[in-house]
Design a protein around this nucleic acid. Structure first.
Length: 505
RNA sequence: CGGGGCGUGGCGCAGUCCGGUAGCGCACCUGCUUUGGGAGCAGGGGGUCGGAGGUUCGAAUCCUCUCGCCCCGACCA
């Protein structure tokens, strides 16, 4: 036994290529998807583990992606009439306890401050797991009449939900997010708003992230604690699992009743306001990784990439001046077009090493400029991911490269979206009518399984027990099958709606 | 919170069975030569072996207790 172990060690030492492979490359997705994910997050410097269990440090590369997401989303929120505000981190426990389902939903995940200023607190404070309660309490103060409605606020913040099992970006005890909270005079208007924001998320995911979700309504067992109805965006990752990547909730009057959020109507009656809340989090960064990443590392859609074009000057011989000057000139020309460019002029690193590094970090395009190119007036372009006729390196005249770069970035963005859409459809199974078939698909390929459902929650339990898949959503019309299912997947009952099943993160 | 695994320079690991005062690869630093897909040579720095206690002349190694992390399950964005 011992002998064998030593032998293997010896063998390993004598094969340096293996060591190199192990250290320089990621575990392939096909071998172990979650190892691939974890390694990628660390190696591409998106994030690092912090000393506190279940929390992570978001490094500049990851944070810039988040900032780019924030900017795009924030513009969309503003365009739909919202303003930003900031509500406090600490919330009286009594607030959270007011809404019965809400407190039940969050109790296991609450972090509570019981001691401060060296003294036990008389009333412990919860670190916000979400801010419905404190915000409703404030809205109750601010809203008197229908003239104060609708009130449309958003906040960018951190929240804490104590997690037993954590994964960078996908599930951490503290995460960054955005939470929108609105108050309306009518149920219909609030529900419309809920759907509007769901659609904002969907548009963002498609247009910016190239991560096309299936959108729909959550079942009662999956909805947000305290909501009347929850809607979600369900994006399919490369391992064919679903990632709930954005939710929008119609809260009805559940919170306004608990917080006395009333207003006087035009006719002089006092009524409870109707609320919505909606959020996306840094989880989206994880979604981005699992949607586009490959075995080389991250692949970033141009619209969100911190750097869209990295220029690698080939520094040969004594005089690096001309090549660096050319790189600067190209950078200026591209920057003037609004393109984010970085020159990697590190002279202690070989070009090949830089190529690997920027590929690992997911930069959409690399431009190489060397003495040979200077002589012929060309540059070398390499695209992070190849589609169709693309070649690994393209030699193009400098003027053409400058003129076409915006188009190339747009095209790349569109190709990523197209590929993700195709993957989603290729792994969607429709017309499935019995449980065994569903279980077979979930167990082998995974993916989205569309079936009929009677609305009976017992069916969800059975399927979860049997396959670990959950009801992701009751899809919006656009995602429904051409042929409407007639039978409930659970057995003999008739189907009243089509639903999507998948294993989820 | 149950089951499994692991804590040894920044990273990945060997050494633990059988106790003798710590080693390998990568990374890092210096110099020279290099640079169009993971450079070469030479020299160099860095570790109270997760922590505490014990056994022993002597502990990374044996014993006890602890802490932490990762993976698999039950709960969740």
């Amino acid at each position: 036994m011992n002998c064998l172990k030593k032998y293997r060690t010896l063998f390993w030492i004598l094969t340096p290529k293996n060591i190199m492979a192990k250290e320089k490359n990621l575990t392939p997705r096909s071998e172990d998807f979650s190892s691939w994910y974890n390694e990628l997050v660390l190696r591409s410097e998106l994030a690092d583990y912090s000393p506190v269990r279940g929390s992570m440090v978001i490094r500049p590369w990851g944070y810039t992606i988040w900032e780019n997401m924030q900017r795009a989303l924030d513009d969309m929120f503003k365009a739909t009439g919202h303003e930003n505000a900031y509500f406090p981190l600490l919330i009286p426990i009594s607030f959270i306890e007011k809404e019965k389902e809400h407190v039940e939903g969050f109790k296991p995940e609450l972090a509570i401050v019981t001691n401060a200023g060296g003294k036990e607190l008389e009333d412990p404070l919860a670190i916000r797991p979400t801010s419905e309660t404190i915000i409703m309490a404030m809205y109750a103060k601010w809203i008197q009449s229908y003239r104060d409605l609708p009130l449309l606020l958003n906040q960018w913040s951190n929240v804490v939900r104590w997690e037993l099992r954590t994964r960078p970006f996908l599930r951490t005890s503290e995460f960054l997010w955005q939470e929108g909270h609105t108050a309306h005079a009518s149920s219909g208007e609030a529900e419309e708003h809920t759907k509007l924001m769901l659609n904002v998320y969907r548009t963002f995911m498609e247009d910016w992230m190239a991560m096309p979700p299936v959108t729909g309504l959550k079942s009662d067992s999956e909805k947000f604690a305290g909501a009347v109805r929850s809607y979600s965006c369900e994006a399919m990752m490369q391992d064919n699992r679903a990632l709930q990547s954005g939710t929008s909730h119609f809260l009805g009057q559940n919170f306004s009743k608990q917080f006395q959020l009333t207003f006087q109507t035009e006719k002089g009656n006092e009524e409870y306001a109707w609320n919505t809340s909606w959020g996306v989090s840094t989880r989206l960064v994880g979604g981005l990784v699992m949607t586009h990443g490959d075995d080389q590392g991250l692949v970033l859609p141009p619209k969100l990439s911190p750097v869209q074009v990295v220029i690698v000057p080939i520094l040969k011989g004594e005089d690096h001046g001309p090549v660096l000057e050319k790189a600067d000139a190209i950078k200026d020309a591209l920057t003037a077009k609004g393109i984010r460019v970085k020159i990697d002029a590190r002279d202690f690193m070989s070009p090949g090493n830089k190529y690997y590094e920027w590929e690992r970090k997911g930069v959409p395009f690399r431009m190489e400029i060397g003495p040979k190119d200077m002589a012929t007036g060309q540059v070398v372009l390499a695209k992070r991911m190849l589609f169709g006729e693309d070649s690994r390196k393209e030699f193009v005249p400098e003027t053409e490269a400058l003129a076409t770069m915006e188009n190339r970035l747009d095209e790349f963005q569109a190709q990523l979206l197209e590929a993700a859409k195709r993957r989603r459809e290729d792994n969607s199974y429709r017309g499935i009518e019995n449980l065994d078939e569903l279980a077979e698909i979930i167990d082998t390929s995974g993916g989205y399984v569309f079936t009929g459902w009677s609305g009976d929650p017992a069916v969800e339990d059975i399927i979860k027990e049997k396959t670990k898949a959950t009801l992701r959503c009751i899809p919006e019309e656009e995602f429904q099958s051409e042929k409407t299912p007639t039978r409930c997947i659970g057995g003999e009952k008739d189907s009243t709606m089509e639903v999507v099943w998948a294993r989820a993160y």
